[in-house]
Every structure is written in structure tokens, then in C-alpha cells.
Design a protein around this nucleic acid. Structure first.
Length: 221
DNA sequence: ACCCAGGGTCATA
DNA sequence: TATGACCATGGG
């Protein structure tokens, strides 16, 4: 068994089932993927609620609404001017690609390339949509993933997105359900034990695997 | 008061 | 190719 598979087992043992992504529709995954860029999910939930309350929760409604109204709705999620533009671009793409049915009919590679071409959708946002919205077996890499696995000594801290994604997809079976759980477990672990500056390594379930954690502990004491 | 969050784009070298 | 500035709100 490879290290990435073994760590998945450890995390599942430690944290149990996660059941991500909290969304009621594929479109909501797209909206959430844009709004959660470098923002706390709590704030994204507020922004989504405000869009719903304003009856702006469809690509058509968002595109028809005044830009200022959309911006006001999503304000709690931060970067609201930029994210308003990105959200509108995402809605345009959603419709241009034929909505749910059109996108569901596309091969994963084709759909990924089409979404990456949208201004404001980078690799993580796109892979959120592919994995959590369309159940495609695409591993989502985020800042926690890079930090955790570089501290574990398995990859370089500056490893490019696609390279790190490849490590996971080469080591794990091609299984969207498992990719879903694994990414959620990584975020759970990161929130508790793998902050950039304040790692609390003491009770980390991966401590025995983590040279960084031991080094930090001996440094700080 | 500082740190951080489920990133991405753009200018610069 | 790779680094840094910038975007902005809200909770610990």
C-alpha cells in the first residue's frame, strides 16, 4: 500500500465519515467554489443565503441582476468585487456549456479544460466542481493538502498543483467517493493540526508519520 | 492586535 | 518559471 492510501486510512480512522460538499445542487457547488476562494466557509454560507434571499440563485438570475446587488449579497465572503466578476463569468460558462445536462455529458478532461478557461476559475475551484458537483474522479488539492504532505516529507512544499494531484491519483484507486472523503479529511486535519504558523502537533493523528511535527515540538520547547 | 480562511490573477524579473 | 502584490470580510 502506498503512503497516500495509508494516510487516508489513518485519517478515516481518526475522524470518521465527512460527507462533503454541503450543497443542494450542482450549481451551488460552482457558486461555493468561487466564493470560498481564500475565505472561511462560514462566510460563504452567509453569502449563499443572501443570494437565495434575493432570489438570485440561478445563473440566469445572477446575470440579470445589477452587479451591485450581487456584490452586496456576497459581501460576507470577502473580495466581493472580484468574486462578483468571477461569479458572473462562471454563470456565463455554465449556460454556454449547456447547464447541468450539457456538462454532465462532457468527458471529464474536456469539461475540466473548458472550466479552466473561465476567468476566475483556477485548478482547485474547477476540481471542486468536477468532484463535488459532477462526481468525477478528480482529486482536489488545496493549501492544506500541500502543507500537510510537504510537512510529512512526501512532496516539496512548492510542488505544482497538477503534480501533487497526480501523486494522489496514481496512488489511490480511481474512485470519486474516496477522493471526496479524502479531501474533506485533509481539511479537517488541517484546521485542527496543520495551520501555517501555529501547528498543534500534540494530538495530531499523523504525528508518528511527521518529521516536521517532531522538529517543531523540539524547537518550541 | 495578530492570524487565518476549503485561491486566482496580474505585473515583474 | 517563479516570486510578490493585490483582493476584503469575519471569527478565533
Amino acid at each position: 500500500m502506498g503512503a497516500f492510501t495509508a494516510i487516508y486510512d489513518d485519517l478515516q480512522q481518526a475522524f470518521g465519515a465527512q460527507a462533503w460538499w454541503p450543497a443542494e445542487s450542482r450549481f451551488e457547488v460552482l457558486v461555493g467554489a468561487v466564493l470560498t476562494q481564500n475565505a472561511a466557509w462560514r462566510n460563504v454560507e452567509q453569502a449563499i443565503e443572501r443570494l437565495r434571499a434575493a432570489a438570485l440563485f440561478s445563473p440566469e438570475a445572477i446575470l440579470a441582476a445589477p452587479v451591485a446587488q450581487v456584490a452586496e449579497c456576497i459581501r460576507p465572503s470577502g473580495y466581493y468585487n472580484i468574486k462578483t466578476r468571477r461569479l458572473r463569468a462562471a454563470c456565463e460558462a455554465w449556460m454556454a456549456l449547456g447547464g447541468e445536462s450539457g456538462m454532465a455529458a462532457m468527458p471529464t478532461r474536456t469539461l475540466r479544460d473548458a472550466l479552466l478557461a473561465v476567468h476566475g476559475l483556477g485548478p482547485e475551484s474547477v476540481d471542486d466542481v468536477l468532484l463535488y458537483g459532477f462526481e468525477r474522479p478528480v482529486f482536489v488539492v488545496d493549501a492544506y493538502t500541500r502543507r500537510i504532505f510537504s510537512r510529512l516529507g512526501l512532496v516539496e512544499s512548492r510542488i505544482p498543483y497538477d503534480d501533487l494531484q497526480h501523486h494522489f491519483q496514481a496512488d489511490l484507486p480511481v474512485n470519486a467517493r474516496q477522493y471526496n472523503e479524502y479531501h474533506a479529511l485533509i481539511v479537517q486535519l488541517g484546521k485542527s493540526f496543520c495551520r501555517p504558523r501555529q501547528p498543534r502537533c500534540g494530538d495530531c493523528p499523523l504525528l508518528s508519520r511527521c518529521a516536521h511535527g517532531r522538529a517543531e515540538i523540539s524547537q518550541r520547547s
